[in-house]
Simulated assay, not measured.
Amino acid sequence: MKTSKKYLAFALMSVLMLSALTGCSNKNEGDSAKFDTAREINVLTREDGSGTRGAFIELFGIEQKNEAGEKIDYTADTAAVTNSTSVMMTTVAGDLYSIGYISLGSMNDTVKAIQIDGCEATIENIKNGTYKIARPFNIATKDGLSDTAQDFIDFIMSADGQAVIEENGYISVSDAGSYSGEMDSGKIIVAGSSSVTPVMEKLKEAYLERNPGVTIEIQQSDSSTGMSDTIDGTCDIGMASRELKDSEMEKGLTATVIAMDGITVIVNNDCPINNLTSEQVKDIFMGNAVRWSEISQ
């Protein structure tokens, strides 16, 4: 009888252990299976006028010339449009099947960065040329710039300003010496790109510590609006997360590169996709690949 009870106890323990192991296995299977590759890819892009969009479609070959030699943006009509970096990140963070793109300097742990052609989007890889999806951060000005605005630009390009740029995850471009200016008063209006805005806010903060009597107003919009505002004289300094267009330069704008930045392709943190080729990204955003099952890993 005792032997029978011992056997029963052992058998019961074995069943419980097996159940526990099976439960873990099912949970893991459930975690891996919750990503349904048959689902459509929810493509997110930026609005027309966005410098990030302009650089992205150029770098991935989504912008192509037609027979007349005109540049055409072939982003799929089905792509959902977001009007800022923060909206892009929030949308991707809340949608398992979405894919988008943002500035490398804006990356945080709410979304996951995808490797492109097996290369991670890092400052080091941009500097050594292995990660090629990179673009300049430009500021634009016109003749007749105020002394205060010029002093702020001098700070941005100084060793002090470039240190702020590096500290915030961007790539410095100037080897100028330390900032030595001093302004007692004045107001500067800076307008444009939502991608450049975060680092510009940090530059503003550092500059005002040295020049507390100055007022700097930063108006976030997009690169094209920033250039238009500078041309119209409604702001002193325009921000663009792309190269300036010939048409903008012809209207009197002068561009200054203040930093380099990568563009990061992002997905939801629970998405199992970790690497895409440049061609796969192009196919996704042009609408040639519409389901995750069409992206081989």
Rank of each mutant, 00 (worst) to 15 (best):
I62F: 07
F60A: 09
Y97F: 05
K6E: 11
M13Y: 06
L44N: 07
S19M: 11
S25P: 01
G61P: 03
D48W: 06
I41D: 05
L44A: 04
T22W: 12
S86H: 03
C24H: 06
D48Y: 14
N108L: 04
E70K: 14
A80R: 12
E40Y: 11
G49E: 06
T45K: 03
G61C: 11
S84G: 01
L12C: 12
E70A: 13
E58C: 07
V15C: 06
D31V: 12
A20C: 06
E47I: 15
L16D: 04
T75N: 04
G100M: 07
K71F: 09
M17W: 10
V87F: 00
T82H: 12
D36R: 08
N28Y: 14
D36W: 07
L104E: 10
E40N: 15
L18W: 08
I99A: 01
I62K: 02
A9K: 08
Y97K: 02
T90N: 13
K65Y: 11
R46E: 13
K27Y: 15
G105E: 02
V15E: 02
G23V: 05
K34C: 04
S84W: 00
N83R: 12
T37K: 13
C24N: 11
S14A: 14
I114Q: 04
K27L: 13
L104T: 07
L8I: 13
I57W: 04
D77H: 04
G61L: 08
N42C: 06
L8F: 09
G51S: 04
S50L: 05
G69V: 02
L8Y: 14
A76W: 09
N26V: 15
